[in-house]
Design a protein around this nucleic acid. Sequence first.
DNA 1: GCTAACTTGTTCAAAGTTTGAACAAAACTC
DNA 2: GAGTTTTGTTCAAACTTTGAACAAGTTAGC
Lengths: 407, 407
Amino acid sequence: MRKINPYDFRVAKRSTSREINRQIVLNLVREHQPISRADLARRMKVGRNVISMIVNELIADGLIYEGATGETVRGRKPTFLHVRTQDRFVIAVDIRFSRTYLMLTDFGGRQIALETFETVLLPDDLIAELVERMRRILATHNAAANCEGIGIAIPGIVDHRTGVVLNAPALEWRNVDLRTPLAKAMGLPIHIENAPKACALAEMWLGANGTAPNDFIFVTVSDGVGVGIVINGELIRGHDNVAGEFGHAPLSLDGPRCLCGSVGCWEAYISNLATLARYFGYDLSRLRPKRLPRGEESDFTITDLIARARAGDERARSAIQGTARYLGIGLANLLNGLNPECVYIGGEIMTAWDMIEPVVRKALAERALTERLAQTPIRISTFSEYPRLRGAAALVTAPIFAAPRVA
Amino acid sequence: MRKINPYDFRVAKRSTSREINRQIVLNLVREHQPISRADLARRMKVGRNVISMIVNELIADGLIYEGATGETVRGRKPTFLHVRTQDRFVIAVDIRFSRTYLMLTDFGGRQIALETFETVLLPDDLIAELVERMRRILATHNAAANCEGIGIAIPGIVDHRTGVVLNAPALEWRNVDLRTPLAKAMGLPIHIENAPKACALAEMWLGANGTAPNDFIFVTVSDGVGVGIVINGELIRGHDNVAGEFGHAPLSLDGPRCLCGSVGCWEAYISNLATLARYFGYDLSRLRPKRLPRGEESDFTITDLIARARAGDERARSAIQGTARYLGIGLANLLNGLNPECVYIGGEIMTAWDMIEPVVRKALAERALTERLAQTPIRISTFSEYPRLRGAAALVTAPIFAAPRVA
DNA sequence: GCTAACTTGTTCAAAGTTTGAACAAAACTC
DNA sequence: GAGTTTTGTTCAAACTTTGAACAAGTTAGC
């Protein structure tokens, strides 16, 4: 029940019906492959003739291809159709505070190559290094001619339309235009997006077939805490691309000071640094941004903490369960307000999900308005490895498969 | 950029283009009336012939009508088109804790008749009384033959699809089926919705032309606190119809106990009762649900409190400004997370908007992540009178104008 | 009072869809 | 090898938009 915007609408042309059905066919092949024309016709409840026309067009455009012939009990055997993912490449980039990740994937999001280097915080230098590495990785894998785009995930607020990083505190970037220089150097479409939003896209477009729900939120817990919101199959970006910054929702107005400058933010209770600070007994607000004090502690990570907890360190366990409790409380707030079909959580803390689940659920039950809300399925991010990179890849592939905008 | 749901999609038929363009025409007439066929053709960038066909169909269906002829500098004069709102009636109902409101409106949301009675909390009795009054009001205004539906706003969680009130604590209702008995008795389509969601629909569909944004939230502050979320011209209902219950977001985990049973909810800081409790120095959690102690105070309302504040009562002023501050803090959370284009606020407290705006804005600035967020336009509900009833009317009219579901 | 210019609204054929049926191709059963 | 079943294609009909021409109505200018 959408309202038509009377100042920005799309009139249906005589090709509109075809475009709509073409995208439906493409998506059905993607979801149900291998699948025959006749199967598509049955699922769509249209004549096989229409499917033939559309499929031939999609084959001609190189989007799908005919594979083996299938088996049937009786009658002519169907020819199976598949989405063409090989020989269509995407470069995915994940720029983080400490390191930058670079992955070459095919159109199905499968990893082909991966490299890593220390993040140079000066944008121009980082861009130069990225360009060099991207050229090399494309050359090495003979992918230069078939690379269809570059997707970049950023820990901060990004204007997805212009490709400008508006504010990324972790990188100390403000109004950095990444797209223009990269597009010029590489000659490829560049898509840039905020990391939690990218993670949500990865689940939606690259998650295992049949599992991706239409309404969900993706909560990332790492240096910061962010949320990617998907409603009705659409990523919510917000009017100024800020949507999803629930990491700074207050849990207590006199709680710990957050790195954002405010007080009592959810992030200040559950970020990796917050959990470590709780363990070591530090005051989060006194910490130099993003670092524990010098000494052996400065290299101590949340993964180390989880290892200690598993080894029987009671204080480590208690610090982690503190995070679990606040994770549940903040989650309850989001479930009450957005009521998604399911929740994905990503971040190192989820390697301890077996430990923390009961505490999270208990906190959820305390603050969720209804029992059904408290029982909302919580899933560990499908991509335990590099969810941000998968999301960056999805930035490039998603527009090919998206529904046409109409009305 | 919506993903097509491969398990629930709509194939384009040969009538789909027409349906899309028909709805666009209808909405353009609604927004820009009076408007001629030629104007429509220019706005839509299609031939006048297409518009003629569609307009004649819409006229035949009784959705629009030809009015006066317009003026031009030269050439044949255009005939103006209007949406037919007269002689198309809607019954809007607002059921609240103390009183129930019943309004007869035309299709433009204009009030034709209004009556009120004390709410009977027993559902069967309330339904009986409603049916009697609705029949009478239709008969009195000769509207029985042209009434197109009944819209009902409820302070609680409603399953919009089945018409069942899942949980309305204010009415002490659980799983009450309103639609079946009302539909049977009245023989009309019945639409039931949660009050803040209905208010959001009213702004979207019945607000002054040109003002209704495509992305906004509507925050209702009265007995409870709720939010109606509209993204991309679409009301967000959530997977279990709970979406928008941000009234129970925590501001402090050791804050005042809320009537919902939890602690430190936004609602427990800014609901009318919370503001009154702050003034009288009561502990909200000790209060019998929804009532101040007996005596003169039990009839004392938030409106009285505002009057006292305006008259110079410093304690009244301070209680209200307390609410203002918490209103701003909670709002900042929603702006960070949802990033709407603008915010509407409804409720008695907004009659004091001139007093509280600076405090709200200051709190907003403290917790909003960016300056632009802090400057998000805040508007008083367009319908200072009976916004819920307008929303109830919009429940009936909106489906007629909504975009067709496609892909 | 007449003509030219201009705008509105309608009519008609062409091009691109879906729709529905018939038909050829391929494979199995008896 | 005939009959049956399923797949995939072909062809005409119905319904769109598209683009042009045309009739109707109005003003300006002479």
